[in-house]
C-alpha cells in the first residue's frame, strides 16, 4: 500500500511470512510506483514489467530476461521498519531509539485528515505530546497517534483501551471522526463548533 514518509512516498508491504518492509515508491527501471505492485512469497514485484525485489531492496528477477541474474546495483531504497503492538513504524535512516510502546492501548483504525497537526490540536483543544493527542469528547478519552504528511494532511491512528468493549470502541471511532470534521473545517478556514 502507498504511505508517506519525510523522505517521500513509500510502498509499504508485508511478505508472505509476515515481515513488513518499506520501499521508496518508485521502480528504478521505468519509475512506476511500486505501491501498485504485487506480493509473491517474500518478494514485491512491480506491476509494469514484473521486476521483483527482496525485502532488502535488491532486484531478484527481471522477467524479460529470465536467465539473467540482476546485478546487485539494481536496488530500491528501503527504510527501516519496526512492526510492534499493532503499529508499523518507519524511520528515514537508522533510528536512535526503538518506537514508543503504548501500554494498555490497542490500535483501532487509521484515517486521513485533510488538516495539519495545528488544526487538529485546535479542534481538540489540547496539544499533542510525543505525537500522541489526548482528546476528550463527551467525557470519553480518545488517544490519537498523529503522523504528519506534509503541512496540510495528517494520518491519524485511533488507539482504544485494550480492554474496552465493542460499544466503547465504536464511540471512540465516532469521536475521532467528529474531530476530523472539525479539524478539516478549521483547515478550510471555517468556524470550529
Amino acid at each position: 500500500m502507498p504511505a508517506q514518509s519525510p523522505a517521500g512516498p513509500v510502498a509499504l508491504w508485508r511478505t508472505r511470512s509476515g515481515r513488513a518492509a518499506a520501499f521508496a515508491d518508485r521502480c528504478p527501471h521505468r519509475g512506476m510506483r511500486l505501491s501498485h505492485g504485487f506480493v509473491r512469497g517474500e518478494t514485491l514485484s512491480c506491476i509494469y514489467h514484473g521486476w521483483s525485489y527482496a525485502q532488502a531492496g535488491n532486484c531478484l528477477r527481471i522477467p524479460a530476461h529470465p536467465a539473467l541474474t540482476p546485478p546487485d546495483t539494481i536496488r530500491v531504497a528501503t527504510q527501516h521498519v519496526e512492526d510492534g503492538g499493532g503499529i508499523i513504524w518507519i524511520s528515514v535512516g537508522e533510528p536512535a531509539a526503538p518506537p514508543p510502546r503504548f501500554e494498555g492501548l490497542a490500535p483501532l483504525r487509521s484515517m486521513v485528515v485533510e488538516a495539519g497537526i495545528v488544526a487538529l490540536e485546535a479542534a481538540a483543544g489540547t496539544r499533542a505530546a510525543g505525537g500522541l493527542l489526548d482528546y476528550t469528547h463527551d467525557d470519553r478519552a480518545v488517544r490519537l497517534l498523529l503522523a504528519p504528511e506534509g503541512q496540510a494532511r495528517t494520518l491519524m491512528h485511533v488507539l482504544a483501551d485494550e480492554d474496552s468493549n465493542p460499544g466503547e470502541r465504536i464511540a471512540a471511532s465516532r469521536a475521532a471522526e467528529s474531530l476530523r470534521r472539525v479539524a478539516e473545517d478549521i483547515a478550510r478556514g471555517g468556524i470550529a463548533r
Binding site: P28, H29, R30, G31, I62, A64, H65, I74
Partner: peptide, 8 residues
C-alpha cells in the same frame, strides 16, 4: 541515470 534500461 534516472532509469535502468535492459536489452528488452
Amino acid at each position: 541515470g534516472m532509469e535502468i534500461p535492459t536489452r528488452a
